[in-house]
């Protein structure tokens, strides 16, 4: 492998890492607040990607303009799903939520297929010409994905750090009872958790669709690397999920020069299991 090939793979890894991070943050935050592994997260992303498709085809918007529509729509859908289903299981054992979200994953996936059909779509047809810098090929779409992801993550960081609600979310994932005692209406925080998780999920879905093609299994297929990102970063810690996403993305891409690319998802899986066994709190554990 030449140094150029290596750097090229790193670039691809950063792109998929950004997408994993967007999903992984949602998984991590939802886990922190609601204490369950949200198995429908991938399909929620797929749903967001299709919402953007609807906006693009019906309103003739560019992808970047369709993105906020998809984010708001998916946030609303996530809140609605929580209100109709998950909310009823807050007092139940956590496994009930696991099973329920597995069912919701199926519902979302089938709904996407019912509405848009089982076929493949792309947002914009035509070939974009990559920029070439020092023999490295960088696609405009990839730049768009990475830049937008950085913008979204910075906004998310500012929200968590400086807003009252952001602090309440962090407080609640530290200790829900103490948050309640401090006067936090935890159900309201839960609503915002879904709003943010859903919006970031939609962004991840749109970016993956932009990089590949839409189909009903689009983001179910990356559920494993996203969970791997959240777990590697220490589940419940959204910043960890960002680092975890990049790590998983880059390692997955690098692995393709040693093993059959068909086994890429297995690479994420192996890393995840290794971390679970070696350091269940995540390898990027901060100072709590």
């Amino acid at each position: 492998m030449t140094i150029t090939d290596f750097l090229q793979l790193i670039i691809f890894g950063i792109v998929s890492g950004a997408i994993f991070a967007l999903g992984g943050i949602g998984i991590s935050v939802i886990f922190g607040i609601l204490r369950f592994a949200h198995l429908a997260h991938g399909d929620m992303m797929t749903f967001g990607a299709y919402l953007a498709l609807a906006a693009i085809t019906s309103l003739h918007l560019p992808v970047l303009a369709a993105l906020p529509i998809a984010m708001i729509g998916t946030a609303a859908a996530a809140i609605a799903i929580d209100y109709v289903f998950y909310r009823r299981f807050r007092q139940a054992r956590p496994v009930v939520l696991l099973i329920s979200s597995f069912g919701i994953a199926l519902v979302l996936r089938s709904a996407v297929q019912l509405i848009w059909g089982p076929g493949n779509y792309v947002y914009e047809s035509g070939i974009s010409i990559p920029y070439v810098i020092f023999d490295l090929r960088i696609k405009p779409d990839h730049l768009l994905i990475v830049a937008s992801t950085i913008a979204i993550i910075v906004a998310f960081h500012l929200f968590l750090t400086y807003t009252r609600l952001g602090k309440a979310m962090r407080a609640m994932s530290d200790d829900p009872d103490l948050a309640r005692v401090s006067g936090v209406d935890t159900e309201r925080v839960v609503v915002w958790t879904w709003a943010i998780g859903g919006a970031l999920a939609a962004a991840g879905g749109v970016f993956l669709a932009l990089d590949t093609q839409l189909n009903p299994l689009l983001c179910w297929n990356i559920l494993l690397p996203m969970f791997a990102a959240a777990i590697v970063g220490g589940i419940g810690r959204p910043y960890g999920a960002i680092a975890g996403g990049l790590l998983i993305g880059i390692v997955e891409e690098l692995s393709t020069s040693f093993i059959d690319p068909a086994y890429k998802p297995a690479v994420a899986f192996v890393i995840m299991v290794a971390v679970l066994l070696w350091r269940p709190t995540g390898i990027l554990k901060g100072t709590t």
């Binding site: 009252r164 602090k167 309440a168 962090r170 407080a171 530290d174 200790d175 009872d177 103490l178 948050a179 005692v181 401090s182 006067g183 936090v184 901060g286 709590t288």
Partner: peptide, 25 residues
């Protein structure tokens, strides 16, 4: 207001943020 016997601060928040949480309302 209530200070529980155990787990009575938010460990991952800073001192200042803990006070902010106290003043949440």
């Amino acid at each position: 207001a209530y200070v529980p016997q155990e787990r009575n601060v938010f460990p991952s928040l800073t001192v200042d943020e803990n006070l902010d949480m106290g003043g949440y309302l």
